[in-house]
Design a binder for these strands. Structure first.
Length: 315
RNA sequence: CUAGAUGAUCAAGCUCU
């Protein structure tokens, strides 16, 4: 069962839902008794690619197989619905779930709160947060990370720093994602200086900056056309790790294009093609856009063709 | 006795709001 589950998850994670389902059905044909983990994996896979209808079809199959959904099942579906900007409906499902006797855990609360925060309905997010506390759950770091992010989105920087400083008092540990959230929030608010303070702070606390941390900063430098500093960040990643990934490269390529230095952008692209980090459709989109902006349409078409040659799907 | 598969929070382009 576990091996089959792992394989379904493998297909699912790559967005190959057709293969995931085909494999699942074949295993059943061979006499396998499906279990809830497999159904949940399929549901989450469909949800991740936005195919809620298909997810619900699988959901019905759970009962048809004399199994019962659990909190994980519901959370995956709630998140998918919230991602479609329908947090109200997600909340209804949440209540349904409770009516049916399931006890939501911190993960399901967090998913709901995040949905509201991302739709700039932080007041509703806080209502769910209050429900969470009333239910006796202690909000964890992830919950606070979601709230910090929501406050940033609304420009409520004063409350951000208050909350950040209360975290330990409230019994939540500050983790790398908390710092990344702070750094990214300040970068988006055009306060790179403040962001860099948190970057230093995290290092002083012996917390390892992640690939995301460094990419946030690289991108911020790029967006401010501070390409020297962006490149410095990038080189330090090559030297000391964590190694840049496709997102890091794409930030730089886009930055160079917009700084009208297509030459450097294209050099980086070459490095990718020759190296181990494959460009994706976003990388190509930045390059194509860069060439178009300069009126270099032939090169734009050529690069576009390269993307197709690599089997990438233009969106 | 113990281990292995499923759900939440952070980063990139374009478009739309």
């Amino acid at each position: 069962h576990v091996v089959v589950g792992i394989l379904i998850n493998g297909f699912s994670n790559k967005g190959l839902m057709r293969d995931a389902v085909r494999f699942f059905l074949k295993a059943i044909d061979g006499g396998l008794e499906p279990n809830l983990v497999m159904f949940n994996t399929l549901i989450e896979g469909f949800c991740r690619v936005g195919k809620i209808e298909d997810a619900l079809k699988i959901f019905k199959q759970i009962q048809a197989n004399n199994l019962f959904p659990d909190v994980i099942t519901y959370t995956a579906i709630m998140k998918a619905i919230a991602d479609k900007k329908m947090s109200k409906m997600a909340l209804n499902i949440f209540f349904q779930m409770i009516k049916q006797g399931f006890i939501p855990d911190a993960v399901s609360y967090c998913a709901l709160i995040d949905g509201f925060c991302k739709q700039k309905k932080i007041a509703d997010g806080y209502k769910v947060f209050d429900m969470m506390i009333r239910s006796g759950l202690l909000p964890d770091t992830a919950t606070y990370n979601v709230l910090l992010n929501g406050l940033f989105r609304e420009g409520r920087l004063e409350e951000v720093s208050q909350l950040f400083h209360q975290l330990s008092k409230r019994g939540a540990k500050v983790d790398v994602i908390t710092y990344n959230t702070m750094i990214n929030g300040y970068c988006c608010a055009n306060k790179i200086g403040e962001a860099l303070k948190f970057y230093e702070d995290m290092k002083a606390k012996r917390m390892e900056p992640s690939i995301v941390t460094l990419t946030i900063l690289t991108d911020a430098f790029c967006k401010h056309r501070r390409m020297d500093e962006a490149l410095q960040m990038f080189n330090s990643m090559l030297d000391n790790g964590p190694l840049p990934n496709v997102v890091t490269y794409s930030c730089l390529i886009d930055g160079y294009c917009k700084a009208q230095d297509i030459r450097s952008a294209y050099d980086l692209y070459d490095q990718m093609v020759e190296g181990t980090v494959s460009p994706n459709i976003i990388t190509y989109s930045s390059l194509v856009h860069g060439f178009c902006r300069e009126g270099r349409l032939d090169e734009a078409s050529l690069v576009f063709q390269y993307a197709l040659d690599r089997g990438l799907m233009p969106d």
